[in-house]
Amino acid sequence: MSDFDAENESVETSAPIALVDSANIETLIHTVRGQQIMLDTDLARLYEVETKNLNRAAARNADRFPEDFRFQLTKEEDESLRCQIGTSKTMEGRGGRRYLPYAYTEQGIAMLSGVLRSEVAVQTSISIMRAFVAMRHFLAENATLFERLRGVELSQAAFQQSTDERFNQVFRLLEGEVEKPQRIFFAGQMFDAFSLLTDLVGRAEREISLVDGYVDVHTLNVLAKKRKGVAVTVYTSGNRLTQGDVDVFNAQYPQLTVRRTRTFHDRFLILDSATAYHIGASLKDAGKKCFGIDLIQDEELTKMLIEKLKLLDEHQTA
Rank of each mutant, 00 (worst) to 15 (best):
R98L: 13
R98V: 13
R98T: 14
Y99A: 02
Y99C: 01
L100W: 05
L100M: 07
P101S: 12
P101F: 11
P101I: 13
Y102N: 01
Y102R: 01
A103E: 02
A103K: 04
A103L: 04
E106M: 08
E106W: 05
Q107V: 15
Q107R: 15
G108S: 08
G108K: 08
G108D: 08
G108M: 10
I109V: 14
I109L: 11
I109Q: 09
I109C: 12
I109F: 09
I109E: 10
A110S: 15
A110W: 15
M111Q: 15
M111C: 13
M111S: 15
G114Y: 08
V115T: 07
V115R: 09
L116G: 13
L116A: 10
L116R: 10
R117C: 02
S118W: 10
S118N: 15
S118H: 07
E119V: 03
V120E: 14
V120P: 06
V120H: 11
A121P: 06
A121V: 10
A121C: 09
V122I: 15
V122Y: 15
V122K: 15
Q123L: 09
Q123K: 11
Q123H: 12
T124M: 02
T124G: 03
T124A: 07
S125Y: 04
I126N: 13
I126G: 11
I126C: 03
S127D: 07
I128Q: 06
M129N: 05
M129Y: 01
M129A: 09
M129I: 01
R130D: 13
A131P: 04
F132P: 11
V133N: 08
A134K: 02
A134S: 03
A134G: 05
A134M: 01
R136T: 13
H137L: 14
F138V: 00
L139K: 07
L139C: 07
L139F: 09
A140Y: 01
A140V: 01
E141L: 06
E141V: 03
E141M: 01
N142V: 02
N142R: 10
N142A: 03
A143M: 09
A143K: 08
A143N: 07
T144F: 04
L145P: 00
F146K: 00
F146A: 01
F146C: 00
R148E: 08
R148F: 08
R148N: 05
R148Q: 12
L149W: 12
L149V: 13
R150V: 08
G151E: 12
V152Q: 15
V152I: 15
V152C: 14
V152L: 15
V152M: 14
E153R: 12
L154E: 10
S155Q: 02
S155F: 01
Q156D: 02
A157E: 03
A157L: 04
A157N: 03
A157H: 02
A157R: 04
A158Q: 02
A158S: 05
A158G: 03
A158C: 05
F159Y: 14
F159H: 14
Q160Y: 06
Q160M: 10
Q161A: 07
Q161Y: 06
S162E: 11
S162I: 12
T163L: 00
T163A: 00
T163D: 00
D164G: 15
D164I: 13
D164F: 10
E165V: 11
R166P: 02
